[in-house]
Design a protein around this nucleic acid. Structure first.
Lengths: 256, 256
DNA sequence: CGCGACTTTGACATGCATCAAAAGTAGTGG
DNA sequence: CCACTACTTTTGATGCATGTCAAAGTCGCG
């Protein structure tokens, strides 16, 4: 079966740092259900799951208001989600990495509530919702998985939203970096040294700071040997130190 | 059937401003499914839906970490949801009014992720998840409703979280008041004149401001005749004016 | 009526946005 | 391959919004 095959392929790619293994992908639970389809032919599966679409840097996966057509799982690369405020100013809502899902919140509203753009050349898998009636008898299990995904998403957003309002600028930047590192580590990607594909402006927008402030704080951190910066390359040298600044204790307990 | 009866009762209570009609309640969609249960006896229904529990001011509906046992729909009164930050400081995550649901995000995680406390004497209905297997053949419709609820919740949280970081203090307070007014109006409750059951400290925590700032801004607004304040009583006099400060254009287009 | 908690008011300090300009980086075409 | 332009990032100087501290005033509950 096509799906299992791919799972194995990726399972052996643990040392590869730019691409997430299927087992670490947000769609994995749902794919488990999809793969159970009894009379599933390769063509049949392909209608539901479009694997490995390539998205060029700067291209949009979808835009605010477009009709919902499917969930995307990021395979490689990275994306930003964003919307426009009054006055046409862009507000970055989040950054998304291999293993993350995009488009979840549109499931019931039938339209994407924000836009998603590739920050670098990337690839995604798409779970097409148009063809979902093909799932038939496994639809209930599919729904259960969907409920899990949605509920997780709510938890994640809750955790985030409450925090940032009260935080100072350096807390925000430190928390941003630690959070990034955690998410990459969870997916089996390199967590201490990575490329920030997004611009400083994007980071600033996301954190609710001025670009200049982000720049200054990164410099401050590098002066204190908490990290090193070479344009977009970031190397987290003293993660415990950063975690202390961010007031983050749990999460990512490696490097204890 | 017990449920339909209550629906009618409340439907006729539109001029009553402290209690939400069942038709405006967040559980309504799900209850539609529950009420379809074929062999439903009153006792049977009561096991799933516990109607009109009374919660005294200051009492907790649930606390962070408690095992999930059910969804709550607020019938009357109001609640705050909150968690504790490092150092034991309380962070208010939201305020909840008649018609709102509490506990949604715990559906899949099996534990409540925050605490919910009554800001005044209140009443709730509880949808018990322990007894859900009683739903049998209607379980799928139940799931569909749940997916809708979860997805809506995500949209609401998204809208909120992105905004507040960039806003100034008066924008936040104005947006808070307008948002409150909208939510009350949506549920058929009095929207221009209401009692803020929560303390200034709670508002400040929620908005990420100092108590003093909230106090000052309310005074400022009342000096400019945008509203009037008498301790906890608020009267929104110039909603268009407030909406302008908050940069909110859509939503609640009454009083045009 | 009195006590403790909440709210308001004032004075002051400071973190961060804003403006301006220099330095660095990337993309393009000759 | 280099030079040119446009964009992004960094650095510095300044001002204001908002947090903090302190104290007076008000509310509400027993």
């Amino acid at each position: 079966m096509a799906l299992k095959e791919e799972t194995n392929n990726q399972g052996s790619c643990n040392n590869c740092n730019t691409e997430v293994a299927c087992a670490n992908c947000g769609l994995y639970g749902i794919l488990g259900v999809v793969s159970k389809l009894e009379h599933s032919t390769p063509e049949h599966l392909e209608k539901i799951l479009k694997k490995r679409q390539v998205v060029a840097k700067g291209e949009n996966l979808f835009r605010t208001g477009q009709p919902f057509h499917g969930l995307y799982a990021i395979k490689s690369g990275s994306f930003k989600s964003y919307a426009f405020l009054e006055g046409g100013q862009e507000q970055v809502a989040g950054f998304h990495f291999p293993g993350d899902l995009l488009g979840l919140e549109a499931v019931s509203s039938t339209r994407y509530s924000y836009s998603a753009r590739a920050l670098e050349d990337s690839s995604v898998c798409e779970l097409k919702f148009e063809e979902l009636d093909l799932m038939q008898d496994h639809f209930q299990q599919f729904q259960e998985q969907l409920i899990l995904l949605l509920s997780d998403q709510i938890l994640r957003e809750q955790r985030q939203s409450g925090l940032s309002v009260r935080q100072s600028a350096d807390e925000r930047v430190a928390a941003f970096l630690i959070g990034l590192s955690c998410r990459l580590a969870e997916r089996g990607l390199q967590a201490d040294e990575f490329r920030l594909a997004m611009s400083r402006q994007d980071i600033a927008s996301y954190l609710g700071l001025a670009v200049e402030t982000v720049s200054r704080i990164l410099k401050l951190f590098s002066e204190r040997d908490l990290l090193s910066v070479q344009s977009k390359k970031i190397n987290l040298i003293d993660k415990p130190g950063l975690r202390e600044i961010a007031h983050i204790k749990g999460c990512c307990q490696e490097t204890t």
